[in-house]
């Protein structure tokens, strides 16, 4: 409640706005790119680019300052890693043990596709065998015929 005092000051200070030209500084497009790679340290899972917290605002100012000083994006990231450790990076560096997490999606998809290929081969082979076996038989039995008819019917509407 102690904040009431300063809030009142704010109220009293409200005076008509003076028309002034817009601030002309142009934002470095790299700022957002770099800041979104950094973890906002007070908010756990938001990036420095996104977090509305004061700490993040100060860290953005730091990024801005270093970019203006001529650092590359990578150098700015390294600057923060030196201070905070790898933890500050929202995506782990592609090196050493971290390859595991970067490789996981590829491994998962590759494994999935291999299983898919094996299953498809085995199942189509089985189908061929059965069709071949059925062809040697004199005629399709009535129950089978009925099933085929039903499935075709269903197919028509799906």
């Amino acid at each position: 409640m102690t904040r009431l005092a300063f809030l009142l000051t704010v109220l009293l200070a409200a005076t008509p706005a003076l028309a002034q030209p817009p601030a002309t500084n142009v934002e470095d497009p790299r700022l957002y790119e770099v800041a979104s790679q950094l973890r906002c340290v007070v908010c756990q899972n938001l990036s420095v680019a996104d977090s509305p917290s004061e700490m993040a605002q100060q860290m953005r100012a730091m990024v801005r300052e270093r970019l203006r000083a001529g650092d590359s994006s990578e150098q700015v990231l390294q600057f923060f890693v030196d201070k905070y450790g790898e933890w500050i990076l929202l995506s782990p560096r592609k090196q050493g043990f971290n390859w595991l997490v970067w490789g996981a999606p590829l491994i998962a998809v590759a494994l999935g596709l291999v299983i898919f290929a094996i299953v498809v081969r085995r199942w189509t082979a089985r189908r061929r065998e059965r069709v071949a076996a059925a062809a040697t038989r004199p005629a399709i039995d009535p129950a089978m015929r009925e099933r085929i008819r039903k499935e075709l019917e269903l197919e028509g509407e799906r």
Partner: peptide
Amino acid sequence: VKVSVGAPFFNQV
């Protein structure tokens, strides 16, 4: 070692 895995990673992969 503590690492973070966040939005830039997930978006990419």
